[in-house]
């Protein structure tokens, strides 16, 4: 079904300072929007570091959020994959899994969620607006992507007949410093090994709120609440970034080829906290 003619391409700000991205807004348009760049650099960075210019010119925000994993066994129809063919097994767990997740995995699936934008949206507490036969719904971003558990074929909280109409970023206290860091094998046109989205509200020399999320490491866009909790109420100084980032990989379950991601994730988060929060 071609939905490209639906009027869902708008980028609008609410009076309170929230941001509403229509599901059909193009990645390139959102990334280039001056107001988005001003208010939420983390969104613009995440989009600019995604895919290629050609793809960003065509791909939409709703599509990006619905993007499926790059697990090569998922994409190779001759391989076992519980996500593609429930019950067939997971070839990746004991196979080549350098790119796979260390967080949120299950026995059934270790596939990484590939989106950069979704990591930024997770850090910003976004919400997904849907419309369907049962009317309109709003789903908190943290609940939208489903952990694989025993049903990795179910990836989102999206009901039959439902359509994403918009992604909303709620108003954030200002000033809000934010940004996205992507670590990858090559400089462009490549998915993340690890990534970090950071949004910090600092007032009176104290971190009042923090949104931190990671990509390339989770089966879903991975919110780092332990890191956030360590930051809030503290002054951005000295070893705070390292101490907070130390908590980034809590609960990580590395596989044969992706063990390096545990440490790389901490370093990525630490680096991005420093870039956004300043100091050494």
């Amino acid at each position: 079904m071609d939905i490209s003619a639906l009027p869902l391409g708008e980028i609008t700000f609410t009076p309170e300072g929230g941001l509403r991205l229509g599901a059909l807004a193009r990645m390139a348009d959102v990334a280039a929007d001056p107001a988005v760049r001003e208010a939420y650099p983390v969104i613009a960075h995440a989009l600019e570091l995604s895919a290629s210019p050609q793809l960003r010119n065509m791909a939409t925000i709703g599509g990006n959020v619905m993007q499926r994993t790059r697990c090569s066994y998922f994409r190779d129809v001759s391989a076992a994959c519980n996500k593609r063919a429930p019950g067939s097994g997971c070839a990746a767990r004991e196979g080549y899994n350098r790119g796979h997740a260390i967080l949120g995995t299950s026995d059934a699936c270790v596939a990484t969620h590939p989106s950069d934008l979704a990591v930024a949206l997770a850090a910003l507490d976004a919400r997904i607006h849907t419309r369907g036969p049962g009317g309109e719904r709003t789903v908190p971003f943290a609940d939208f992507h489903l952990l694989p558990g025993t049903t990795p074929d179910r990836e989102q909280d999206l009901r039959p007949g439902e359509l994403i109409v918009a992604v909303e970023v709620p108003p954030h206290p200002r000033p809000l410093a934010s940004g996205y860091l992507k670590v990858r094998d090559r400089q462009s046109y490549e998915f993340a090994l690890t990534s970090a989205a950071v949004a910090l509200h600092v007032q009176g020399g104290v971190i009042r709120s923090a949104g931190v999320a990671a990509g390339g490491v989770g089966t879903v866009p991975w919110r780092l609440r332990a890191v956030e909790q360590h930051l809030v109420g503290r002054r951005p100084a000295g070893g705070l970034w390292a101490a907070a980032a130390e908590r980034a990989a809590e609960g990580a379950r590395p596989l044969a080829h992706n063990g390096f991601k545990v440490d790389l994730l901490r370093r990525t988060v630490e680096r991005q906290l420093r870039i956004v929060g300043g100091g050494s």
Binding site: R70, S72, Y73, D76, S78, A79, A91, E94, G95, Y96, D185, R186, Q187, S188, Y189, E190, F191
Partner: peptide
Amino acid sequence: DHRDGRIVNADFAGYLLPVSAD
């Protein structure tokens, strides 16, 4: 994948060639 001899990155997404930025 030495378990069955399958090449797991048989495409341009998985087999990385330098891009202009590199």
